[in-house]
């Protein structure tokens, strides 16, 4: 199987999307005859190359972080470049990976509907959408938190490499929680009352000596009451 992976992270190689894709690709390549090629959509000027890769692909995986509950603009740029492929008979099969910093998969379900429709618009076979929340700065999360996630992505890639389909059970597992449960909401509310809630952001603000400016409102003077 020949898989083309489009990495739609605006951060490119230094991104959570890259890390998740690496584990997926490692699993995918466990099947000997498989090949895969990776393209970084943040190299916007390489548009012609992306189109050529899409045209020649058998299977495509388009992966990106959630921006404003939808795809980043660099990914929309790529999607717009695919307009000439709408309705073409021999388009590749396409699947998607959406990751976000929010815990709940629900944030990504709206763009999932768009992606499923996009596949239909392109006459691509829709392979499904992998949704993973709580993934912001996954590289900084402790190993005990990420071990199972990375293993799941490896397994998802391995089974995809064999069957050409996403394992539905793994998709469900990765997407948990779909919404916060009553217990999780209770814990969340408890944490929000403690300094733990903002610990990581405040650490970064202090490192940058901008903690005192964290609530800056650069345009506030003009607000009309």
């Amino acid at each position: 199987m020949k898989l083309i992976v489009f990495n739609g992270s605006p951060r490119g190689k230094e991104s959570t999307t890259t890390i998740l894709l690496k584990h997926f690709s490692d699993g995918f390549m466990a099947t000997e005859e498989n090949t895969h090629e990776l393209a970084y959509l943040n190299h916007v000027k390489d548009s012609e190359k992306f189109i050529k890769l899409f045209r020649e692909a058998e299977q495509v995986l388009l992966a990106f972080p959630l921006y404003d509950d939808v795809m980043p603009a660099i990914v929309k740029t790529f999607i717009e470049s695919l307009e000439p492929f709408c309705g073409r008979a021999d388009n590749p099969s396409i699947g998607f990976l959406v990751q976000s910093g929010f815990a709940e998969a629900n944030h990504s379900r709206y763009v999932e509907r768009y992606l499923e429709k996009l596949a239909r618009r392109l006459s691509c076979q829709y392979l499904g959408t992998v949704i993973k929340g709580n993934a912001n700065r996954i590289e900084e999360q402790p190993g005990w938190m990420t071990k199972k996630i990375f293993k799941s992505f490896h397994e998802l890639g391995r089974t995809f490499g064999k069957t050409g389909e996403f394992d539905k059970q793994i998709l469900l597992k990765l997407a948990k929680p779909e919404k916060l449960s009553a217990f999780q909401l209770w814990i969340f509310r408890l944490i929000l009352k403690t300094p733990l809630a903002n610990l990581n952001w405040n650490k970064l603000l202090k490192e940058n000596k901008t903690f005192e400016k964290r609530f800056n409102k650069p345009y506030v003077d003009e607000i009309i009451s």
Partner: peptide, 25 residues
């Protein structure tokens, strides 16, 4: 391609500084 233009999306996602990094319910 089924969504608002890249041009609008570019401007839209640069509204991020109007929010804080902190999270609430």
């Amino acid at each position: 391609m089924g969504f608002t233009s890249t041009l609008l999306k570019k401007a839209h996602e640069k509204l991020l500084p109007l929010l804080l990094p902190y999270v609430e319910l």
